[in-house]
């Protein structure tokens, strides 16, 4: 059935911010077809955890492997399988959505202009394709960023608060896309304050310890 080796495995991860320990000896596994919803209070280290897993930050100790390979040693191969949306959207305000997605694609997987126009109309940006992004609303910019993830042909999606400033329809649409991705054997790691209700999906939860200083 499911090959245990193709998932994401996190072993005894420890993370500090400044000299304060956020979490200690964190272990989990994520298999194809699964969603991991990371929960925790503000300051518990959700964003730090996602950035560590994406390879943007260094943990104090611990190991992250993807498909059985150490992510740090095989950075390029890992990055090929990874799509990330963080607090910063990675959208250039002086470029149009099309140009933005184009330069995003040129950093990794290739895509045709036709693909870009298709995905933009699907995320509800039909007619905005050639406008500069500084004329778009916060929610529309978020849609551009998520369109990049949808377009990317990657296995693992790491989404940090992806639904911020999206309207109800937008959230619904992206949840559907997440479900579709997972059904095709993808993996999703996300933090959100939204309830993620998806039928026929394995959703795991990871509760980070509270950021209480006296703990």
């Amino acid at each position: 059935m499911i090959n245990k080796e193709v998932g994401l495995a996190v072993k005894s991860l420890t993370c500090e911010r400044g000299y304060r320990e956020l979490f200690n000896d964190l272990n989990f596994e994520l298999l194809p077809g699964e969603i991991l919803h990371i929960k925790g209070e503000n300051g518990a280290g959700k964003t730090s955890l996602l950035r560590i897993i994406a390879g943007l930050a260094l943990p104090v100790s611990g190991q992250i492997s993807f498909a059985g390979y150490d992510c740090r040693k095989y950075r390029s191969e890992y990055n090929e399988q990874l799509a990330f949306v963080g607090h910063k959207l990675g959208i250039k305000l002086e470029l149009s959505p099309v140009e933005n997605i184009q330069s995003y694609c040129e950093l990794g997987n290739s895509c045709t202009p036709q693909d870009i126009f298709n995905v933009l109309s699907k995320v509800g940006l039909y007619g905005f394709e050639e406008m500069y992004c500084n004329q778009l609303s916060a929610g529309q910019k978020r849609r551009v960023a998520l369109a990049q993830v949808i377009l990317s042909d990657t296995k693992l999606w790491i989404l940090d608060e992806p639904f911020t400033s999206l309207d109800v329809e937008g959230i619904e649409y992206f949840l559907k896309r997440i479900q579709q991705h997972v059904e095709q054997g993808g993996m999703v790691l996300l933090t959100t304050h939204q309830e993620v209700n998806l039928s026929n999906c394995t959703i795991k939860y990871l509760q980070l310890p509270s950021g209480d200083m006296n703990a």
């Binding site: 994406a54 390879g55 390029s76 963080g86 607090h87 959208i91 950093l107």
Partner: peptide, 14 residues
């Protein structure tokens, strides 16, 4: 500031 630098770090290219 806008986060495109993160994408460069996450690219498969050197």
């Amino acid at each position: 500031d806008d986060g495109t630098l993160e994408f460069m770090l996450l690219s498969e290219y050197p």
